[in-house]
Design a protein around this nucleic acid. Structure first.
Length: 270
DNA sequence: AGTACCACCTGACGGC
DNA sequence: TGCCGTCAGGTGGTAC
């Protein structure tokens, strides 16, 4: 379930449970989740190191260690990281684990194995190599406007593109577009500047609200699409019912009355 | 270069 | 009950 708010919850969990601890054991249960590195090379780089900090850009986690190297962690579609009191053994879906000097552990779970664990020279180096865009919570309004309006594809696929802005996934894209009353298929380069400023503003509000309720959508204020995001559910503004379309190849839920698509603004129109 | 599409992997769910 | 098709919140590579 991990988009920016979910990954931020994991970051905070690791920050309060792992920083300052020394890695004694590196347990690679399934090397299919390793990102272009062997289990032995990763273990060698990590063992004996103390964890210095845990950072996040978009959906990407960075665990910085004493040596200066960085353990990179991505949760994919179904990943999660836990900090159990002892090193687990044989748990379902556990793919990777670290054992610390105080007996506690870090355990990485990933049912579908779309996630990845790797090693980087530095956060900057990783960001450059992957061309990762600025984090959705930190990007300035001007940068957001410039980056988003530079693309002619649909606003939905722009929001999902981690090279443009990092951290937004299918669900939060739908929520932000609903809040900004933008149709997902609107050509991003044709959206007025003031509407893009609104989109930036609601995007920040949505991400912050989700973090505030610890990503429990049921606790979101009324008026949020995420409380009941499904085809046929009532529009949170009371404007009829939600529908489902495919945008950017993904299931997209919207309110056809709140989110109109002017013909001239459609993707591909000119 | 920019955009569109598929594959990667496993499980849950609805229909027959 | 059981089998089958469909769908799921991400991303990288490949093919236009």
């Amino acid at each position: 379930m991990p988009e920016l708010p979910e990954v931020e919850m994991v970051r905070r969990r690791l920050d309060s449970n792992c920083v300052g601890k020394r890695i004694l054991k590196v347990d690679v249960i399934d090397d299919g989740i390793l990102d272009h590195i062997s289990a032995s090379r990763l273990a060698k780089a990590l063992k004996g190191n103390t964890i210095v900090s845990v950072r996040r850009i978009g959906k990407q986690l960075f665990v910085e260690i004493e040596s200066g190297k960085v353990l990179t962690v991505h949760l994919g579609l179904t990943g999660d990281v836990d900090c159990p009191p002892t090193l687990p053994d044989g748990e379902r879906w556990m793919r990777f684990a670290l054992g610390f000097d105080d007996g506690t552990a870090l355990a990485y779970y990933d049912l579908r194995k779309f996630g990845a664990v790797g090693l980087a020279t530095s956060i900057d180096d990783f960001v450059k190599r992957r061309k990762l865009g600025p984090d959705a919570l930190s990007i300035t309004e001007n940068d957001f406007l410039a980056r988003v309006s530079a693309h002619k594809k649909s606003i939905k696929s722009v929001l999902l593109d981690q090279h443009i802005v990092a951290g937004i996934g299918n669900l939060y894209a739908d929520e932000a577009l609903f809040q900004a009353r933008l149709h997902p298929l609107t050509n991003a380069s044709k959206i007025q500047a003031r509407r893009l400023r609104l989109l930036h503003e609601v995007l920040l509000a949505v991400l912050r609200a989700s973090i505030a309720v610890e990503t429990d959508f049921e606790r979101l204020p009324s008026g949020y699409l995420l409380r009941e995001r499904r085809k046929g559910a009532p529009c949170p503004r009371g404007n009829g019912h939600l529908v489902s379309i495919v945008a950017a190849g993904r299931t997209t839920i919207l309110c056809p009355r709140c989110q109109r698509l002017p013909r001239a603004f459609a993707e591909g129109a000119h």
